[in-house]
């Protein structure tokens, strides 16, 4: 039974290579629930809370992207530079749990747990984020789309640590919206992130809590690009908007559960995506 609290990334990687099956704990907001509820009984733990290198962010050399540390608390994304660069991420961050949870939780945890309701995940998907994984001896970058495999399943290999995500800076508009049955501190019933890249004339839409993992609506994205010129700001015609929502709903794969019904979730993502598209073209 060991608890390792590395102070540097190098130390952390050494620990995780030495004990590839150790439980990684970042903010603890997911893992501790499982332990408190007796669903998991870890023996060896690597706690990353002291690894400052992953609790920061930095521009890439060409300034076209930002590397966001996996341990940067959501609270730090709600305002400031990250919020200006990635408004959708800031908006998603603000909907995570409560202020107490946002002080502890981070993207690394969302990716590690890989719940389809993870609030930041639709944003990572819509932004085509890359997940940066490291071991003591190597590193690999993987598209977030390939990283998220299924319900609470991801592509992290034993011994690997999620150290950061790389997010491209988009010229255009981005937004996030989430439906829950309470006006604060609520798990997503359905969520949507929409990003319009004005430079490329492309749109991306990602949905949360309406499938086994985050859903990227690629067919609808391609369809819309053929319907309107995404490079210029313009109002979207009502019939087009209607069809857009319907297509988004068709790409979702929701289920009935105790939080909602599949029918409502389909309706919710259609509505959220329409509203976001309108917001994108009225700003």
């Amino acid at each position: 039974m060991t608890v390792a609290i590395p102070q540097t990334l190098r130390e952390a990687l050494a620990f995780s290579s030495a004990n590839p099956n150790a439980q990684i704990i970042q903010g603890g907001t997911d893992l501790m629930v499982e332990i408190n509820f007796n669903h998991r009984k870890p023996t060896d733990v690597i706690a990353l809370r002291r690894v400052e290198e992953i609790r920061n962010y930095a521009y890439t050399a060409d300034k076209s992207k930002v590397i966001v540390g996996a341990g940067l608390p959501y609270q730090k994304m709600e305002h400031g530079e990250i919020a200006e660069l990635f408004p959708a991420l800031a908006q998603a961050a603000r909907t995570v749990g409560s202020p107490q949870i946002r002080a502890a939780g981070s993207i690394g945890g969302n990716l590690g747990t890989c719940s389809p309701a993870g609030d930041a995940l639709p944003v990572l998907s819509a932004l085509n984020a890359e997940v940066n994984l490291r071991t003591e001896t190597g590193s690999r970058d993987i598209s977030v789309h390939d990283f998220m495999i299924g319900v609470k399943r991801n592509d992290r290999k034993p011994g690997e640590l999620i150290i950061s995500v790389t997010l491209p800076i988009i010229q255009g508009w981005q937004g996030y919206a989430k439906v829950g049955v309470r006006n604060a501190m609520v798990i997503s019933v359905a969520s949507c992130c929409l990003v319009v890249d004005r430079k490329l004339g492309a749109i991306s839409v990602a949905l949360g809590a309406v499938g086994p993992t985050i859903i990227r609506c690629r067919e609808t994205e391609q369809w819309l690009a053929t319907q309107i010129d995404l490079k210029s700001i313009s109002a979207v015609a009502p019939n087009l908007l209607k069809e857009f929502g319907e297509r988004i709903a068709n790409e979702s794969k929701p289920i009935d559960d105790h939080r909602s019904t599949a029918a409502y979730r389909r309706h919710a993502v259609a509505t959220l995506s329409r509203r976001l598209l309108v917001r994108a073209n009225t700003k």
């Binding site: 919206a177 989430k178 439906v179 829950g180 006006n183 604060a184 609520v186 959220l272």
Partner: peptide, 16 residues
């Protein structure tokens, strides 16, 4: 936003 339905979820705007 926090005074409107949906709160920080930015679900709704006043006209909704």
């Amino acid at each position: 936003a926090l005074e409107i339905v949906g709160g920080s979820g930015l679900t709704s705007l006043p006209h909704n």
